[in-house]
Design a binder for these strands. Structure first.
Length: 961
DNA sequence: CGCCTCACG
DNA sequence: ACGTACGTGAGGCGC
């Protein structure tokens, strides 16, 4: 105790290692991080990130990390304690030595005490440190620690999954557990138990009841003393399990009497051993972390770069000799390369070695003369596959101008053709020179997000022909729920960090500079690198796809769909902006009227659009909705549709708010926004279809999203009237699959009853209603059909009684009965659901008819919620994904047919089970049956359940239905 | 930038 | 005992 008086506040951080490690591990379980040696590094990375974050942001003066050590006294008290917890996952077992080494390299002491758990050690040290004037932060995600919180001992919940870090003080704890004193946390925990720790609690008492009882009786002991005041089953349970309740409280108590001294000087934060950290990060391949944490430090030793199979050095050697013949004058190229390398490369870059161009030999050439371009074209035409990339002035294909083209057909060697962005005729002429290449039907064109390049070239009148290979889509099939940026792909699969685009054009800002502002010689390296990396990625992905059985899906569906989507986007949709403007004014009138009424009802003015203000007005000021009040996970009042609908019976304000919400949504999201996205170039709206976003294989649409244009309500539907054909010679034609997903499920399950209904063309929802409610088909009324329809959807989503009950407003019991009857009537469907889950448990993925995969790595999780969610995905993903496969094939076939027949009708939208066409009136009669045929025959289901398509036409999208 | 709410299939 | 139907994207709010 030799504290220097008036020193800076002493901040002690105590980390609960295992709790943090487990959490990190499961955070990455969806997308495991595997390094090139096959090591799952998620837990190590997560833990280290957390540690680094706290060191950098919180600047502790003292710190220690606690690990559990073996069995504890709790096991002796209660043998089942934590018994059901599964053995430690293997990946965590291998992670721990690394984590300990990292902690040691940070020079942070590891604290353990045989026979005690980390929480006891942390609790004890925390209290002793507090007594010595420390401010203590217990770093853990575990809520049990709440019982230890005092004025100067707090919980530091590290940032997690997008949630910011959180410091829990006394006020937080009291609010969270709804108790008066912190000690009562133990009573709550003891009463309600903890399934994951096998703390039994008292049967029938969960979080809610525990809170109510402790609020009333103050403690478990006092509750037991007044057990006769309780009623019915509850009294019986509390009486019978009194002892278990006391034991549970004991088990939940953190013991702060561990025989352990708090020696402050041993926990003083010290400088880390950077060299050792660098070694560890290198081995683990934590490049970004290393860049963030370590000062620039010594450059990598040549050995570490050259070590085969580790980082870098993956690129082939430059091709010697021979190629010189490509250049009329090869000498000047070499000079250019040498000159730039010194400038951009090397470890002088901020934040350590990100860029690694200098590690590997490459030859990137500037092709800026007619002779060089001719020479390049000559070589391109002799290749069977070439990767290419476009450099442009922006991301919007409607307005972006071409700045240059890069090509690569041999790893490590690429060519950049600059194009004057502001001189359209010259640019066009240069692009035309490469037309023989782009239109060659034999050369495989490889690109990363190649739809973008196709769309750019389309504006230069180039129709890219021949087979395509998109590395983004390749990776989308390999890892559907990851991201597919080229930078990340290069880092993951080539162990190579490309030049960030911001090195050239800077961060996003007001005065955005573009590629056109950069000297071609500088753009060259960036552009060539993209083409080069793309080619190399193709060579990595192709064997992987083959191995996974995904190559055919890529080559027959995803890659051929690219030009189709490019065309759809290029064509665009005509929007009647005048009609939109009128409707906007009309909606605005309604909205203002509603606003006035709401203010009158509320007796005050406030921002109705703010859920926070709305909740306060409704539930605090007006005090309505007693008993129906719910809070969101962030502690705010929930004011969603579901709650407000319930409130509508009690107070007229609820219905007004719902209507206000609906109309202002329509106005802001659609009626106001859409006209602003009409292109000045052609007066049409060009959406962007993303082909590599959804986990199931569907497309998504952005900027604007044209896949969620209203239709379900009357005022929403109006908006569709403003989607119109391009001119008087055209009509909109809409072709919808009817109940594709249900048909797919009927087919996959082989359920005879359901298949028969589809074969005979009976309305499936009515048919389901007749079975589920056990009435003849003729007696099915609208209400029964509505419920059956919800049941049918529920089945596809992986039904739960709770979900069904909520949606059709019945009790859980009734919902359970309906589901039971359903499974009795459709036993094969039940079988199908079970089979889907079991299959997914084995494979850890689900697949569609065309073998598209969705990985379900949590299907064997011991977290029941997560597992349930994943099981529902095991049922839904093959169905939703197969429907996506089918419409994609139909789109490809229709696109080619329209072209072959030289028809002028154009496909302009896809909305998951619907295709919309801008149809020439004279062509409608001819194309209608063919579109139907191509859609229904796109893919035959294994058991032959037929697909059906409804086609309609009209002067607008609403009429076309 | 995360949260809430709500538009679609 | 737990938390609860699948998949998306966008706008407004409030930090």
């Amino acid at each position: 105790m030799t504290d220097t008086a008036a020193a800076a506040p002493k901040k002690l951080f105590l980390l609960d290692a295992f709790a943090l490690i487990y959490r990190s591990h499961f955070a990455f379980s969806k997308n495991p991080r595997i390094n090139s040696k096959g090591l799952n590094t998620g837990a190590v990375l997560g833990f280290t990130n957390t540690l680094v974050e706290v060191l950098q942001k919180e600047r502790p003066t003292h710190i220690g990390v606690c690990f559990d050590a073996g069995k504890t006294f709790r096991h002796e008290q209660f043998p089942a304690y934590k018994a059901q917890r599964q053995a430690m996952p293997e990946d965590i077992g291998t992670a721990i030595p690394y984590i300990k080494q990292i902690i040691e390299a940070f020079h942070i002491p590891i604290l353990m005490m045989a026979g005690y758990e980390a929480d006891d050690v942390i609790g004890t040290l925390a209290q002793r440190a507090e007594a010595q004037g420390f401010e203590v932060f217990m770093m853990t995600p575990d809520k049990d620690y709440c019982q230890l919180v005092t004025e100067r001992i707090k919980i530091y919940k590290p940032a997690f999954m997008g949630n910011a870090a959180e410091i829990l003080d006394v006020a937080h704890v009291l609010a969270r557990f709804e108790v008066e004193r912190v000690e009562q946390v133990i009573d709550i925990l003891g009463l309600q138990g903890d399934a994951s720790d096998n703390i039994p609690g008292i049967p029938g008492i969960g979080e809610k009841t525990a809170k109510t009882l402790i609020q009333k009786y103050g403690s478990v002991e006092n509750l037991l003393a007044h057990v006769d005041e309780l009623k019915g089953k509850q009294q019986e349970n509390v009486r019978n399990f009194a002892e278990q309740g006391l034991l549970s409280k004991e088990l939940a108590t953190i013991h702060v009497n561990v025989p352990l001294d708090f020696e402050a000087d041993k926990l003083v934060l010290d400088a880390p051993d950077e060299a050792r950290l660098r070694e560890l990060f290198d081995e683990l391949e934590f490049r970004q972390l290393a860049a963030r944490v370590l000062s620039e430090g010594p450059p990598r030793t040549p050995a570490s770069v050259a070590k085969p199979g580790t980082t870098g050095a993956r690129r082939p050697k430059p091709v010697a000799g021979g190629q010189a013949s490509l250049f009329g004058n090869p000498g000047d190229e070499a000079v250019a390369i040498g000159a730039e390398e010194g400038e951009t490369g090397h470890d002088g870059a901020p934040a350590g070695a990100r860029r690694r161009l200098e590690d590997v030999p490459y030859q990137y050439h500037l092709m800026d003369t007619p002779a060089r371009r001719q020479s390049l074209l000559h070589f391109l035409l002799r290749q069977t596959e070439v990767s290419f990339d476009t450099e442009t002035t922006g991301l919007d294909t409607m307005t972006a101008r071409l700045v240059g083209l890069s090509f690569c057909y041999r790893p490590g060697e690429a060519y950049y053709v600059p194009v004057p962005a502001d001189d359209l005729p010259t640019a066009q002429a240069i692009v035309d020179e490469f037309c023989p290449f782009f239109s060659s039907p034999d050369i495989l064109k490889i690109g990363q997000n190649i739809k973008y390049d196709l769309s750019i070239l389309k504006h230069y009148k180039v129709e890219v022909a021949g087979p395509l290979f998109d590395t983004m889509l390749a990776h989308y099939l390999i890892e559907p729920d990851m991201r597919h940026n080229m930078d990340v792909l290069a880092e993951t699969y080539l162990h190579y960090a490309p030049v960030p685009i911001t090195d050239l054009i800077g961060p996003k800002g007001k005065k955005q500079i573009t590629m056109a502002d950069i000297a071609p010689a500088q753009v060259k390296d960036y552009a060539c690198e993209d083409a080069d990396v793309t080619l190399q990625l193709k060579h990595v992905f192709e064997p992987m796809l083959k191995e996974l059985g995904l190559l055919e899906l890529l080559n027959t569906v995803e890659n051929p769909l690219v030009p189709v989507l490019s065309s759809i986007e290029y064509e665009g949709v005509r929007i009647d902006s005048v009609a939109m403007g009128e409707y906007s004014a009309e909606l605005q009138g309604y909205v203002q009227e509603l606003e006035a009424q709401i203010f009158t009802e509320a007796g005050q003015e406030f921002n109705i659009g703010s859920p926070k203000q709305l909740g306060e007005v409704l539930f605090d000021k007006m005090d309505i909705g007693r008993g129906k009040i719910k809070k969101t996970k962030t502690g705010q009042y929930a004011t969603g549709e579901e709650i407000l609908s319930q409130l509508a019976a009690e107070n007229p304000i609820a219905a007004l708010i719902l209507e206000y919400r609906q109309l202002s949504k329509l106005r802001s999201t659609y009626v106001e926004a859409l006209p602003q996205l009409v292109s000045v170039v052609d007066g049409r709206v060009h959406t962007n279809f993303n082909q590599a976003v959804t986990a199931t294989g569907r497309l998504s649409s952005t900027n604007p999203n044209l896949q969620n244009i209203p239709i379900r309500t009357e005022k929403g539907r109006e908006i569709r009237k403003a989607f119109v054909p391009r001119d008087d010679q055209h009509l909109l034609l809409a072709a919808d699959y009817s109940q594709v997903e249900l048909r797919i499920m009927a087919d996959f399950s082989g359920d005879a009853t359901m298949i028969e209904a589809f074969r005979q063309g009976i309305d499936v929802h009515s048919s389901t209603a007749s079975k589920v409610f056990r009435v003849p088909l003729s007696e099915v009324d609208a209400e029964m059909r509505r419920k059956a329809k919800t049941v049918n959807f529920g089945i596809i989503y992986g039904i739960s009684a709770f979900g069904l009950a909520q949606r059709i407003g019945i009790s859980r019991k009734e919902a359970t009965d309906i589901i039971d009857t359903y499974f009795q009537e459709f036993p094969s469907v039940k079988q199908f659901m079970d089979d889907s889950i079991n299959r997914a448990r084995e494979l850890e993925y689900a697949e569609t008819l065309l073998k598209r995969r969705r990985y379900l790595r949590d299907i064997n999780s011991r977290n029941a919620t997560l597992r349930g969610y994943t099981e529902r995905n095991a049922i839904n993903a093959p169905i939703q994904g197969t429907a996506a496969d089918i419409i994609k094939l139909a789109m490809i076939n229709i696109y080619h047919w329209l072209r072959e027949e030289k028809l002028k009708t154009r496909m302009i939208l896809q909305v998951h089970d619907e295709l919309v066409f801008d149809a020439v009136q004279e062509e409608v009669a001819y194309i209608t049956p063919k579109i139907k045929e191509l859609m229904t025959q796109a893919l035959l289901l294994p058991r032959g359940v037929p697909l059906e398509v409804e086609v309609g036409t009209g002067r607008n999208w609403l009429q076309a239905h």
